[in-house]
Nucleic acid binder design. Structure first.
Lengths: 243, 243
DNA sequence: CGAGACGTTGACCTCCTTCAAGAGAAGTGG
DNA sequence: CCACTTCTCTTGAAGGAGGTCAACGTCTCG
């Protein structure tokens, strides 16, 4: 569960005691191939998930085939903490790359929260961040132009890749096809292609297979009006106020 | 806190013991005039909120003035349960009508959860539902046409008004100007106006001041491809009396 | 080497925006 | 009670951002 530890350290001063508590978390690993579904709409999951490796996407497909991606999940992301009140999932989670997740049993999670430990608080942070990402997705798709959307999402993913320990400076592996980008941004893949090429020609980005490099991050930020406050990653340690 | 009780009864069999626990919740009422902000972006709220009366909106305004509403809050809605890990709010909450909220102290909320009571579980339900509404907002604005969006949002608000005990059959008070609708749906208010008139002429809706009447709900549902599963209200122990 | 996924590009079209201007409704102050 | 401002709603005309359709190129992998 290296990805989890790395992540939680962003949100709390994890000490030996907390580490031990986390290591003792009951659950198990499961692997999914690229394209497989981790959770299907209508299922009733009884575990929470931690992404250990790979990227996944939460998405909804309408009856006529239109598809919308709600958000992406990177290594270290925790999701479905609401298993306490398990109801049918209203969406699907699909592996983009091959994915390894750790499934945490409901009971184990509960005891972590009940203890009022820092580790429990860190889980809350994860939930908070995930909701904030959803909110930003609404703003991005609701009130930004295609250009702004593409630039904004790229900056978000780069930032999150760094947090996940998967980025090398300005370059990172972004294993997302243009069609997936389109489904995330509410655009057609043809238009996403045009915008990407435009950003490329403007010298903002460079792409080589799945490796994306930000050649001019300042410019991108300006285009996207990007402010990473919503990722809630600045200076967290002081703020933990659980219990 | 009538609005809260009414709401929680949708999500759990609240007994006398739970009722007592809820009535003992520490906190207080606060009133806001229409247009006032309950929470400003950048503030650090230390309480969770329960809407007792009136409608509010969670919204983000971009630097250039474009504004996006994330979701609407109706009586009985609970929000900002994540105060445990209080960070700066990344959005603003504005009163649409005059609003009365109950502010719950962090500590009080915690003890409710720790007890593992039904009342605590009901709060989790509220959080789950709110997130689901956010997700649906992404799908709606990302992959639906203007017509579909308007119809879909109207159906959602009608359903939620019923849950909040504020709807009389097919009619309900929807105190939302066309400009606000536009900000919620990522459209221009001019176009919202046109779509509303179109739905009116098609005999689907009727509007009289803030009172909206669904004249042909079946048709609306067809237009919107509306399925209220995401509101998570079907599987309750209590039978939903859908007047 | 062939199949299938993914990316690229052009032509045309449409849904929605923007601009503009006017009509009601509603509050405000004299 | 009437002039006033100020919202909100309404409607038309023109333009543009992005969608759709179609065809072709490229990469990967079995």
């Amino acid at each position: 569960m290296d990805a989890l530890f790395r992540r939680l350290r962003y949100y709390a001063d994890i000490g030996d005691r907390e580490l031990a508590a986390l290591k003792a978390l009951k659950g198990g690993f499961e692997d999914f191939a690229s394209g497989e579904d981790l959770i299907n709409r209508g299922e009733r999951p009884s575990e929470a998930f931690i992404v250990e490796k790979g990227w996944a996407a939460r998405n909804v497909t309408l009856r006529d085939g239109r598809s919308q991606i709600l958000n992406f999940m990177l290594p270290g992301d925790v999701f479905d903490l609401q298993v306490f009140v398990a109801d049918k999932a209203d969406h699907t989670i699909t592996a983009i790359t091959s994915v390894r997740v750790f499934q945490v049993e409901r009971r184990a999670l509960l005891s972590l929260f009940d203890g009022g430990t820092r580790a429990g608080a860190a889980f809350w942070w994860c939930a908070l961040q995930e909701e904030a990402i959803l909110r930003e997705q609404i703003v991005r798709n609701g009130r930004r132009s295609a250009r702004e959307r593409v630039a904004h999402l790229i900056l978000e993913l780069h930032r999150r890749a760094i947090i996940a320990g998967e980025a090398e400076g300005e370059s990172f592996v972004m294993p997302i096809s243009q069609a997936l980008l389109a489904d995330a941004l509410g655009l057609s893949f043809v238009h996403v292609n045009r915008v990407l090429r435009e950003l490329h020609h403007a010298g903002c980005i460079e792409r080589n297979r799945t490796i994306l490099t930000l050649k001019d991050r300042a410019r991108l930020r300006e285009i996207a009006d990007f402010d990473d406050d919503y990722l809630h990653i600045k200076d967290n340690r002081r703020r933990l106020v659980y219990a």
